[in-house]
């Protein structure tokens, strides 16, 4: 699939933002007043920024508001609705913490749960697609959840806990890649099943339907850059998981340390998300002999 920057930023930053808001919702770190403002500002900036990024990839953004209407059937619609509800539920909690110095714990808990459910619905937009076997597995929601909780813990200054979560994330990511590499073959779609000509024999594309490119090929038959996949996997594993965990565990705890770990983690996260899209193979490629 085409790794469009808008969807990479959308999933990466809104995930981080909601992850941080989930930690803040359960009162970690237990801050009020000015420091609380800082944390909530970052959480909202990331979540809202990510959501805004997603609108850049719309062909007809003037209808974007209609995306709130189909929550009964569509995960994308659910994601839109849930993110707004989550931001609205956490807002009074944040105001309580920042301006009144109070902790309305139940409200915070509800907000935290909603934040994680929002991340789940984001992941389901991709997981639901049978056409992309690499995404169509429980590993996708698990990974999205771990990126949100792990990255959120990092932003929330949860030191050792964050380090541990990032290591778990690294292991899960490694496993997901390994399993993911076999998914397309396991799902069983082939040029023979796509054309129904398998009963006659082996099928190969003789002539494509058009000499130029088209929307389908640009969007779903993306193959550029896959050759660097192995290197990029190592980079993203190092940057998203091992390095920030190491920084948190072995450098003296300070804002600067956390900031360094965050920057390193974000580089790894963006690389991993680029791979998530670029490595995903859509079954329509079978009609294009790819």
């Amino acid at each position: 699939m085409h790794p469009a920057p808008s969807v990479i930023f959308f999933t990466a930053f809104s995930g981080l933002g909601f992850g941080l808001l989930a930690w803040l919702g359960i009162g970690l770190p237990d801050v009020t007043g000015r420091p609380a403002f800082g944390y909530y500002f970052i959480g909202y900036a990331l979540a809202v920024g990510g959501l805004l990024a997603s609108t850049f990839h719309l062909g007809n953004p003037k209808n974007a508001v209609k995306a709130f209407s189909q929550w009964r059937s569509s995960w994308l619609s659910r994601e839109a609705v849930l993110s707004v509800i989550t931001l609205l539920v956490i807002a009074p909690y944040a105001i309580g913490r920042i301006f009144l110095g109070t902790d309305w714990a139940l409200l915070g808990l509800a907000g935290a749960a909603l934040a994680l459910i929002t991340v789940f619905s984001t992941s389901m937009i991709y997981t639901q697609l049978k056409t992309v076997p690499r995404w169509n597995t429980p590993a996708t929601p698990v990974l999205f959840q771990l990126y949100a909780i792990g990255g959120g813990a990092l932003l929330a200054g949860q030191g050792a806990v964050a380090a541990l979560l990032l290591l778990v994330l690294g292991a899960a990511q490694l496993l997901a890649w390994q399993k993911g590499d076999r998914r397309f073959a396991e799902a069983g779609s082939t040029a023979e099943s796509a054309t129904g000509l398998g009963r006659i024999g082996k099928v190969r594309l003789l002539e494509p339907p058009h000499s130029g490119r088209n929307y389908l090929m640009k969007e779903m038959v993306h193959v550029i850059g896959r050759k660097h996949a192995q290197k990029l996997r190592i980079i993203s594993l190092l940057f998203a998981s091992l390095l920030p965990a190491g920084i948190l565990l072995f450098l003296p705890a300070s804002y600067a340390t956390v900031l360094l770990a965050v920057v390193v983690h974000v580089i790894g996260l963006l690389t991993a998300r680029w791979l998530f899209f670029a490595e995903a193979e859509h079954v329509v490629r079978l009609y294009y002999g790819k």
Partner: peptide, 21 residues
């Protein structure tokens, strides 16, 4: 009149039957 051009339906179709203009 309702489509926002997100392209998700084209991703969901196995047959490449939808194209975003």
């Amino acid at each position: 009149n309702d489509c926002m051009g997100c392209g998700l339906c084209a991703w969901a179709c196995p047959y490449g039957a939808r194209e975003l203009d």
